[in-house]
């Protein structure tokens, strides 16, 4: 098996006086979509932020594409091909949709084919091309945040709770969009609370609890095993279905 695109080994992260990640070990295989599940406060968001370099790991190693990136700065990691969609989406509200995308395209304005592909994924982006991002609806903002992350081809896309607060119809759109994304070269690592969404798009899965990985395997296996779901994720996730 080829080396994983991203591998965390014994990663610890402190935020202030709190010890959030307490030795996280897991791998994200190349291509496909890895789901990172777990209860609230398990350390999922912290894991993504540590991979992006927004918080520094206090111990352990992060390897990406065969090289250690544990001490690299956030912009350096971004330029290695990692893109990040935070939980609050982090769109620039005062900039237009166009400007948001333009800013994310580091090597000049995106070509028409790429844009057309993005517009097919998220038609709202075309419709509101010149609208200020702050005026978009919640779902449209989420689409913009994802569109911004893939305006140029990226190797690894980190997405934090893409379905948070979205209406069921929009979640269905999201599932389609993620399936389309999986057909590209991009590897995805997605934090999710919504198990229905996770089951629909995940290939592999890792489950966190109390700052550690407590389970890793194929999504399909977890989806088929009610008892394991119950044990790992508790009832909270069922409620989301």
């Amino acid at each position: 098996m080829a080396e994983a695109l991203l591998a965390l080994a014994g990663v610890n992260t402190h935020i202030g006086q709190y010890h959030i990640l307490q030795g996280v070990d897991f791998e994200v295989p190349r291509a496909g979509l890895t789901m990172l599940l777990g209860r609230n406060g398990a350390g999922k968001t912290t894991t993504l932020r540590t991979v992006m370099g927004l918080w520094q790991a206090s111990a352990g190693a992060i390897r990406y594409d065969g090289a250690e990136i544990t001490r690299r700065t956030t912009p350096e990691r971004a330029r290695l091909g990692i893109a990040y969609v935070p939980e609050n989406m982090g769109i620039f509200a005062g900039l237009t949709v166009r400007e948001n995308l333009l800013l994310a395209a580091r090597s000049g304005p995106p070509d028409d084919r790429r844009l057309e592909w993005i517009f097919r994924l998220f038609p709202a982006m075309q419709r509101f091309w010149h609208a200020h991002a702050g005026n978009l609806s919640g779902g449209q903002k989420q689409m913009l945040a994802i569109a911004r992350a893939i305006v140029e081809p990226r190797r690894l896309l980190l997405v934090d709770e893409p379905t948070k607060g979205l209406a069921p119809s929009i979640i269905a759109n999201m599932i389609d969009a993620f399936r389309e994304l999986k057909r590209t070269e991009t590897t995805l690592l997605v934090v999710e609370q919504n198990f229905h969404f996770a089951r629909s798009v995940g290939d592999t899965v890792a489950v966190m609890d109390c700052g550690r990985i407590v389970h890793a395997g194929r999504m399909a296996d977890l989806a088929a095993d009610d008892a394991l779901q119950q044990q790992l994720l508790g009832l909270s996730l069922q409620a989301h279905q």
Binding site: L54, T74, P75, P86, L95, R106
Partner: peptide, 16 residues
């Protein structure tokens, strides 16, 4: 303008 709104995100997009 983007940096004024959200520093962290500008860094995440690859700008120092």
């Amino acid at each position: 303008r983007a940096g004024v709104e959200n520093r962290e995100m500008v860094e995440s997009l690859g700008y120092r």
